[in-house]
Design a protein around this nucleic acid. Structure first.
Length: 259
DNA sequence: ATGGTAGATACTCTA
């Protein structure tokens, strides 16, 4: 079972690239972030023609998540369950065949110390609470998406320059660690240990050409599922296309049978 | 050096 996560930065703009990528890559499950598209306007038909059903949770202009699947999607949940819920569309929780998939678009955080940064940290604390209250460690579960955090120095092109900045500050890395310690494994790092492997490059200053990137898009799994993962990779090719997303897809393969 | 680019919406905000 092939599972992928990709921040497309507008489904409307990226649809032609997504269609071509689905045709050639044929993942079983794809988690999308920053669709920037309401559920009514989501382009479900061209994806259905390729065999993909979609569950979406979107809003105009900002945020927005979706899960595409070749197999039936059941038990859909949107956002955190607590009173008040979410005003920003950032979390989808679904069950597909033998696995539970939680797709997140973690807040960017703007700048360390800002109001948005505080929102990011509190959102991450709520995510940990969500796992405590509604997930089980022996479930086959994947948590994937745009986390907007690079976990380690080897995930940053210039860790000295980036230390303390948003996406690589200690409070963010600590908050990420707290979620990991619930009982999740970084599936990408299970298969690839070298530095220089990134999933996001700023549009500005020729960052991609220089490989000035960060690994901020992640695919984590419970140990029972991570133990049967056979490969993981970042698909850099789409970042070389005309008018690309600033993120590249992360893909992992698991040896589980889909009924 | 406080830049630089991209996307959606409205003439600015977010990333």
């Amino acid at each position: 079972m092939k599972v992928a996560t990709w921040n497309v930065n507008s489904i409307a703009v990226r649809l032609p690239q997504l269609v071509e990528w689905l045709k050639t890559t044929r993942p079983d499950v794809v988690c999308l972030q920053e669709t920037k598209c309401t559920d009514e306007r989501f382009p479900a038909e061209p994806l259905l023609e390729l065999g993909y059903q979609a569950v979406t949770w979107g809003q105009p202009t900002y945020n927005g998540v979706a899960v595409l699947s070749l197999h039936p999607i059941v038990d859909t949940r949107r956002g955190f369950p607590e009173a008040g819920g979410d005003t920003q569309c950032r979390l989808l929780d679904v069950v597909i065949g033998p696995i539970r998939v939680i797709n997140v678009y973690v807040p960017n955080g703007s700048e360390v110390g800002s109001e948005k940064f505080g929102y990011k940290l509190s959102w991450l604390a709520r995510l940990r609470r969500y796992f405590d209250e509604s997930c089980l460690a022996d479930q086959r579960l994947v948590l994937c998406g745009d986390f907007n955090i690079a976990p380690e120095p080897r995930d940053v092109h210039d860790p000295v320059l980036w230390e303390g900045r948003v996406l690589f500050s200690k409070p963010e890395r600590d908050a990420l660690r707290v979620i990991e310690q619930w009982g999740l494994v970084d599936v990408f790092r299970r298969h690839k240990s070298e530095p220089g492997l990134y999933s996001w490059w700023d549009y500005r200053a020729g960052a991609f050409r220089r490989n000035h990137g960060l690994r901020i898009d992640h695919l984590w799994a419970t140990p029972v599922l991570a133990d049967v993962s056979s490969s993981a990779e970042i698909d850099r090719k789409v970042r070389t296309l005309e008018r690309p997303s600033d993120h590249a897809p992360v893909i992992a393969e698991f040896a589980v049978a889909v009924p």
